[in-house]
Simulated assay, not measured.
Amino acid sequence: MDGYAEYDNFSRLDIRVGEIKSVEVFSEAKKPAYKLYIFFGDEIGIKKSSAQIRNYSVDELVGRKVIAVVNFKPKQVANFVSEVLVLGAITDEGVKLLGVDDPGGVKPGCRIG
């Protein structure tokens, strides 16, 4: 392995813009987390995600546009099935969510490429 990923590896990921519609505290998770319900447009609809982003408040998250991988195999987290992986940068202050620079002009479901 030379440390490089092939473009084909990246192109197999379905990465999309989603809009967080609702958030619940995920009290059953081992680490502090939220249950996110994210809308990815009419084609995909609403998908669920478990996210360790408790450095954000619920009010900061609802309505926020996020970037997520929507074609990973669903993962069981405690009593919840996480269907998508929300992307963020890992910092000393916690995860900083990736977003779009024009959230009003980008619709849920737009592909990232």
Score class of each variant (00 low, 15 high):
residue 32 P to H: 05
residue 32 P to K: 12
residue 97 L to E: 06
residue 91 T to S: 10
residue 54 R to E: 08
residue 107 K to R: 14
residue 10 F to A: 12
residue 103 P to Y: 06
residue 93 E to C: 03
residue 16 R to N: 10
residue 14 D to P: 02
residue 94 G to M: 03
residue 73 K to I: 05
residue 99 G to A: 10
residue 107 K to H: 15
residue 3 G to T: 11
residue 85 L to E: 07
residue 43 E to P: 12
residue 72 F to D: 02
residue 96 K to F: 04
residue 83 E to M: 00
residue 34 Y to R: 12
residue 91 T to Y: 00
residue 100 V to E: 01
residue 73 K to M: 02
residue 100 V to G: 12
residue 106 V to Y: 05
residue 30 K to H: 14
residue 32 P to M: 01
residue 48 K to I: 09
residue 111 R to I: 02
residue 93 E to Q: 15
residue 41 G to H: 11
residue 88 G to C: 03
residue 51 A to Q: 12
residue 95 V to P: 00
residue 59 D to A: 15
residue 48 K to V: 03
residue 50 S to F: 04
residue 6 E to M: 15
residue 113 G to C: 02
residue 33 A to H: 10
residue 40 F to T: 13
residue 65 K to T: 03
residue 10 F to N: 08
residue 83 E to H: 01
residue 7 Y to R: 15
residue 5 A to C: 09
residue 83 E to K: 02
residue 33 A to C: 09
residue 15 I to G: 11
residue 102 D to H: 14
residue 95 V to Y: 00
residue 19 E to A: 10
residue 109 G to Q: 11
residue 22 S to H: 13
residue 90 I to K: 10
residue 86 V to W: 11
residue 110 C to G: 05
residue 22 S to C: 11
residue 53 I to R: 05
residue 56 Y to S: 01
residue 54 R to D: 01
residue 65 K to W: 01
